[in-house]
Design a protein around this nucleic acid. Structure first.
Lengths: 237, 237
DNA sequence: AATGGCAAAAGTGTATGCAATCCCGATCCC
DNA sequence: GGGATCGGGATTGCATACACTTTTGCCATT
């Protein structure tokens, strides 16, 4: 079976296969199609994508750096199972970084960027109207895209990469600890944040962002759960 | 030839060799023993550490993620040659993150931590008294260690990892653009920052940190240098 | 029946081989 | 003489083979 048989993204023509696998796995993890703790055997993943273990190892190493996969020597790679403490740290980092991004973004915001934000918001609205598990996944993803767009507009490549990691890990945390009841990520918040950005109101945008992140975090159940970690609570969620 | 024959760091007993190579290369890069643009051939590095290209590739991939190495498909890995713009973004990120770390650190500062800070400061003082190129390198490193200690004390593992990357990239930038004249990193600044931390004066500590970072950055020559980048200025510094 | 140990099986860590790509220099054509 | 073209050499990308570690299932022993 050859490379082109797989429905990779159109741009991936003859590109790096490890990166493609990384993205597939990452999507699967933050969509929770792969449950935390799931073992990602090199041979198994390799068979799925029809590549050798070499390429899979490369992809797994990248995911390990991003914090989406936990690697143990001689034991293998597993979908990360972030602790509540880890989750808090991720959100703390976001509360710190995102208001600053808003400051930079306001200075550099161009009409084209606004159009992109609006497009993302419309996509979110569309998803909110529908029902179903796969829609819920897409909703989490779309919510992350809004924050990634903010990072991109801010124009700091270093912080943008940090945000990519933080958003991915947030998505995993939400999938893990999210109370299904409430809408996972307030869509209305994004709208008001964008309005503040357009109004060049940095202070307001920053406050809205912090509240937004607070809101997301407060919607989680971050109780320490079960007592001790008997080998990380049996390595399973 | 067996594993234990190599004089790695004492703790590295039977540990991961890729990580060890990564650290060796990282030290060499931020010490500028490896000049920006230098090609890191897989076979060459492998011969140096007496490992196969597989292990080297793993180490290079990690360094590529950290931004210390630039990888080009089918061409190889090169020591990163950060642009002035990139340098500014690194320092912007530090100005954003470090004052926040000070806030967390003040809340969690324990006597043992203070002792560590003092020890680091003493080491810096000792190095300042000496002369020589290798001392200058050690000075840059020691300066970075102070900021890494701050990140560690702050207790956020996510931000700590970000800081590791930022400090490493800063060291590379300083080695690249630093005007040799001025002392690369104001040692006195660290002392006053520590004093502010001990006094639980978060605001003051944050301001001192920002000024400190400003000071470091102002000591660089970040002029756009030579006109265009003819294939990144011929791939050499 | 429970426990300890052993051996096979599974899976990862590393080395190596082969194909593809890129770089460089020589050659040829205009 | 300048520029394009075409090998040769070197290097990377990937797959595979082998070594070592961990796990697992079985059996003997208590």
């Amino acid at each position: 079976m050859k490379l082109a048989d797989y429905p990779f993204a159109p741009t991936d023509g003859a590109e790096d296969r490890a990166a493609a696998i990384r993205e597939h796995l990452r999507d699967a993890i933050i969509d929770r199609r792969l449950a935390p703790g799931t073992k990602l055997g090199e041979a198994e993943v390799g068979a799925l994508f029809d590549v050798s273990r070499t390429v899979v190892r490369s992809a797994l190493q990248m995911l390990s750096f991003e914090g989406l996969v936990r690697s143990e020597r001689n034991r293998g790679a597993f979908v990360a199972n972030p602790s509540p403490e880890e989750a808090r740290q991720v959100f703390d980092a976001r509360r710190l970084i995102e208001p600053a991004l808003a400051g930079s973004a306001v200075e550099r915001l161009r009409p084209l960027d606004i159009a992109e934000f609006r497009s993302l918001l419309e996509e979110e609205s569309r998803l909110m109207g529908e029902r179903g598990a796969s829609v819920r996944r897409a909703e989490i993803r779309a919510s992350g895209d809004f924050h990634l767009a903010l990072a991109r507009v801010a124009g700091n490549a270093v912080l943008e990469r940090f945000m990519e990691e933080l958003v991915a890990r947030s998505s995993l945390v939400i999938a893990l600890y999210g109370r299904t009841g409430a809408s996972s990520c307030g869509h209305a918040d994004h709208g008001s944040i964008l309005a503040a950005l357009e109004a060049r109101d940095v202070r307001s945008a920053g406050e809205l962002l912090v509240h937004h992140i607070d809101h997301i975090e407060s919607d989680l159940d971050l109780t320490p759960a079960h007592g001790l970690d008997l080998r990380a609570a049996l390595s399973r969620g």
